[in-house]
Design a protein around this nucleic acid. Structure first.
Lengths: 245, 245
DNA sequence: TAGTGGTCTAGACCACGAA
DNA sequence: TCGTGGTCTAGACCACTAT
């Protein structure tokens, strides 16, 4: 018989580890963490569970494990940065850095896919597919930072309350949507400001804009939303951590 | 006693699966793969090994697993695209798409860190650290595509043969370097063309450039190289797949 | 040689989706 | 309800690092 010996799941352990690392509860000054064995005992989990959690943290760039040497915490690069692999909404990510992302302008309109300004990255929608068209302009510490256009499939997201527009739409989706969120495809490109964005960002004509397009899917593989985020290039750095296998 | 029941390691299984999926050997027309149980039997591996491999493929965006439904192959977006999580070598990635990345100009010079045009993303080097300064201009199907400046720490990469400059420096490193490669930090930004790049890309003044900066580390945590890749924004899309759970 | 992380085996229960 | 993937247990051997 298999007993659940620990009270911690992988997900909980990840949260706990992040907190403990931040608080300096585990790890010494040289940013070295205890060995796997110690951590297993400390958190009362099996090696499998521990290593699942460490792998997640490692993929987020929080730490790395070196065979024969130990586990090391990695310094974070911050300053106007977004970690592409980090999860949750943008606002939460910036809040961890002591910055505030606020939405000052937000509109929502029901439209049909044929009227949308762009299509999903993969595949085309029937022109009659009902969508919510959401446009938000967001400010970082009071400065224009992000212009976001997203389209949600009304068939799967019947209602978006206006309050949600000024908070984290991601969290709203996570909580209110009938199925579990699955994954996103993202495409990053550099583009040239449109007259509209030129005004918003107060950029000269022809300036760059960093664009993040993404399609969001349910776990079932059903497309649920697609969006385009245009960022002020002077303020945007996108971080990524990659294992070299 | 634990026996190695299978001849396949996770890494081999990943390669095998990619090949078999491409060749259509596994999976039906609807792009559905057999169940985990079938795959375990087919490749003679345990569930653990199989799932490690599937997780890797899933993180690369090749497939996704839906609880209760099965395993599905995902269509790849291509066309001037680079998968940020994929490339062990750009040239190989493009080759899979039938495109050819060639290096036409390459120079290598020994310098000291104080003379470098930029520093690593994380931390500063002593100005007297000996480096190799490498500059390459690369063409995609004959068109200017990429301007690359990289710096390698001479203490750890004593020699870079000129031939290597025209092939995959990544593969050279992987093969010739004394320690195992570990991970990379990447930062993506949009910038404005410098006069030099303006000429290379034949872009108007003030045009955007998509810049990928990265630091490469040994598994030991030792920095080994840092570089900056400037891409023609008209031809560059960077793909990323992100799980949402 | 001891200690660390990396990999693998074998089996169990859990949760979701489709029939 | 049954089959699927998701999670967890418990233990073994392998490979790299430091001593």
């Amino acid at each position: 018989m298999v007993r659940r010996a620990s009270s911690l799941t992988v997900r909980e352990l990840v949260e706990q580890l992040i907190d403990d690392i931040r608080a300096g509860v585990v790890g010494d000054q040289e940013k070295k963490l205890p060995t796997e064995l110690s951590l297993m005992q400390r958190y009362q989990v099996t090696r499998y569970t521990l290593r699942q959690a460490l792998a997640q943290l490692s993929n987020l760039g929080y730490l790395y494990q070196a065979q024969g040497r130990g586990i090391f915490v990695r310094p974070q690069v911050e300053e106007y940065g977004m970690a592409l692999q980090d999860w949750g909404g943008l606002a939460a990510a910036f809040q961890r850095q002591g910055k505030q992302l606020t939405t000052k302008t937000a509109t929502i309109t029901p439209i049909l896919a044929g009227q949308a300004q762009f299509q999903p990255l993969k595949g085309l929608l029937e022109p009659t597919t009902p969508l919510w068209s959401v446009h938000r302009q967001r400010y970082l510490d009071g400065q224009p930072y992000l212009d976001e256009r997203s389209y949600y499939l009304r068939d799967f997201v019947p209602k978006i309350p206006p309050e949600a527009l000024f908070g984290s739409l991601f969290k709203f989706m996570q909580a209110q949507v009938p199925q579990a969120l699955g994954f996103q495809d993202k495409v990053l490109t550099a583009t040239i400001v449109t007259p509209e964005l030129e005004k918003f960002f107060q950029l000269p004509i022809g300036s760059p804009v960093l664009t993040i397009s993404d399609d969001s899917y349910f776990n079932s593989g059903q497309l649920i939303a697609f969006s385009s985020l245009n960022c002020d290039f002077r303020k945007t750095q996108l971080f990524l951590f990659k294992k070299l296998s």
